[in-house]
């Protein structure tokens, strides 16, 4: 279980550091292992023979043109695609810390607790700020007030929102700005102490300042969580990820350290995409 030791994260968020953190070695323990995965929506195949090893406690960015399958793969990691009729992994497997996430004994609710998700558009519940963060804990059956209080504060601090909302925890989450709402959604995901956080274009609806705050948060969170982010913003991938995977037409074209992908990619298609020659 991941323990959030984020007391050192203070607010306001420190300025974005231009210098990248030292990148972890590629050949290290794998958090999520994607093996020979094909994926279909009904008869329409959208992923072809994808093999990928997502390293733990690092940010991995998925980039590629619309329709290349990056969001589909992201949604496979916490079986969100189970909710779509006819959507299925038709070949291969996805393992989290060595265990097949589609094995019969896997509890999907527990999987989604371990693998949280933040969406493109912030989607707070029509509840108070406090209740939004406490919601996941209540669903898990936690009722002890002091335990919930502690988790809410820790999550809001970890998402760099605490100082902005600590005096109005009972106000509606709808009263927050777009950027604050997105950070609230991140806090909500953190409250249940996940191991992996999936982010599907988390900044696409935010202004540059709110984007910088969320990016800074992603940068901080990578110390304790495995983060996978889908983004169309190439600069964002360059700024806040350690590893980048480039997808095209349902295939993984290239995966490697972000600094390598953005300075000297190995594949022509990656080069042409990131330099804006197609896509």
């Amino acid at each position: 279980m991941v323990v959030m030791e984020n007391e050192k994260i203070t607010h306001p968020a420190p300025p974005l550091e231009l210098q990248k953190p030292p990148e972890p070695e590629l050949r290290q323990p794998v958090m999520i292992n994607v093996n020979d995965v094909d994926f279909c929506y009904g008869t329409h195949q959208v992923l072809f023979d994808v093999n990928l090893e997502i390293p733990p406690r690092a940010v991995t960015a998925f980039i590629g043109p619309s329709g290349c399958g990056k969001t589909t793969l992201l949604r496979c990691f916490n079986r969100m695609n189970d909710l779509i009729d006819g959507a299925r992994i038709s070949a291969g497997s996805i393992r989290m810390e060595g265990r097949d996430i589609h094995a019969p004994e896997v509890d999907v609710v527990d999987l989604r607790r371990r693998v949280g998700m933040v969406f493109q558009k912030s989607n707070p519940f029509p509840k108070s700020i406090y209740e939004n963060v406490a919601y996941g804990l209540r669903v898990l059956g936690v009722n002890k007030k002091s335990q919930i209080n502690e988790a809410v504060e820790k999550s809001l601090r970890a998402s760099a929102l605490w100082d902005e909302v600590k005096d109005r925890l009972d106000s509606s989450a709808y009263g927050l700005s777009g950027g604050q709402q997105q950070r609230l959604c991140i806090a909500r995901a953190l409250a249940v102490e996940p191991e992996v956080i999936l982010m599907d274009e988390p900044c696409s609806a935010l202004d540059p300042i709110a984007t910088a705050k969320v990016e800074e948060l992603i940068y901080q969170l990578r110390e304790n969580f495995t983060i996978v982010i889908v983004t169309h913003n190439m600069q964002q991938a360059g700024r806040c990820s350690n590893y980048t995977a480039f997808f095209y037409l349902g295939r993984l074209i290239e995966f490697g350290a972000t600094s390598k992908i953005f300075s000297n990619p190995s594949e022509r298609q990656t080069e042409d995409y990131i330099t804006g020659r197609f896509g």
């Binding site: 000297n264 190995s266 022509r268 804006g276 197609f278």
Partner: peptide, 15 residues
């Protein structure tokens, strides 16, 4: 292996 792409950029002003 490094490469220099020959094809044109989508963004004409950049090109």
């Amino acid at each position: 292996m490094a490469m220099l792409s020959e094809s044109k950029h989508t963004l004409g002003t950049f090109e």
